[in-house]
């Protein structure tokens, strides 16, 4: 916790209309580390990661108060352009969502096309680099012009990761990225997370506690909108401090 955090969340509250979903959250996301967010359904974990790239405010009635400091700068400051912010803080969703009519290549480039024009040779380079980083290149290099939706579920999810990586972010937010995948595709994504950690800060929301235990360095446990415990992952899964964390991870809840 001593090194400067990539993202510092300070006294964060969030609402859907009048319903408060996050209360006084304080948390630091370190660079080149994996931070896992766990907690039961409705605890606010998905809302929480959506506050980290200003996606929560896109929802009807989505309100955020408090600070999210990205490299020390408040992302909710008036001067910050949310579109540019989301290039720096990319997101991968629960269900693989490649654009169905676009080719594999165009899917990777989709984020870049929104903000800049690209030469063909540069585009090829970006596509190969992003697909290699997403550990997908070898599997798709012959089918770059086929629709993204023709790939398997696990490949589609890695395609979405490649799309997020193509815009060269610093932080990757993953919202249950493996919940629709089989164990082998899941293992590939987890292996990918390990290698991406060398270059990015990763925040992953997961319902699978063993996944949190396997991939993350730090884990935060959310319950009813509060961050109950945030600590070293090894500590959380061997001797958590808070009784509520203990009960949740050992399966004694509700």
């Amino acid at each position: 916790m001593t090194a400067a955090a990539k993202i510092s969340v300070v006294g964060l509250d969030a609402w859907y209309g009048t319903h408060q979903v996050l209360r006084r959250i304080n948390m630091a996301v370190q660079d080149r580390r994996v931070t896992a967010i766990i907690g039961p359904s409705g605890c606010g974990k998905s809302t929480f990661i959506r506050t980290l790239n200003r996606m929560h405010e896109l929802v009807d009635g989505g309100i955020v108060k408090g600070q999210v400091l990205y490299d020390g700068e408040d992302i909710y400051d008036k001067s910050v352009d949310p579109v540019l912010l989301r290039r720096r803080v990319g997101m991968v969703f629960q269900k693989p969502n490649p654009f169905p009519t676009m080719s594999v290549r165009e899917n990777v480039l989709a984020g870049l096309r929104l903000t800049s024009a690209l030469k063909r040779s540069d585009a090829d380079m970006v596509v190969e680099r992003a697909l290699r980083q997403a550990a997908l290149w070898e599997e798709v290099k012959e089918v770059l012009d086929k629709p993204g939706s023709s790939l398997s579920g696990g490949q589609q999810q890695r395609l979405c990761i490649a799309r997020a990586l193509a815009v060269e972010p610093d932080v990757i937010l993953m919202d249950e990225p493996c919940s629709a995948l089989d164990p082998i595709a899941t293992a590939r994504i987890e292996d990918l997370i390990h290698s991406l950690k060398e270059n990015y800060a990763i925040v992953i929301v997961t319902h699978n506690m063993q996944q949190a235990a396997r991939v993350s360095d730090e884990t935060g446990f959310f319950l009813m909108g509060e961050l109950v415990e945030f600590s070293d992952t090894n500590k959380i899964f061997t001797s958590p401090k808070d009784q509520r964390t203990e009960e949740y991870i050992t399966g004694k809840f509700g």
Partner: peptide, 9 residues
């Protein structure tokens, strides 16, 4: 069960 925390201990 892949026990954790107090169960694992």
């Amino acid at each position: 069960r892949q026990p954790v925390a107090s169960d694992l201990r």
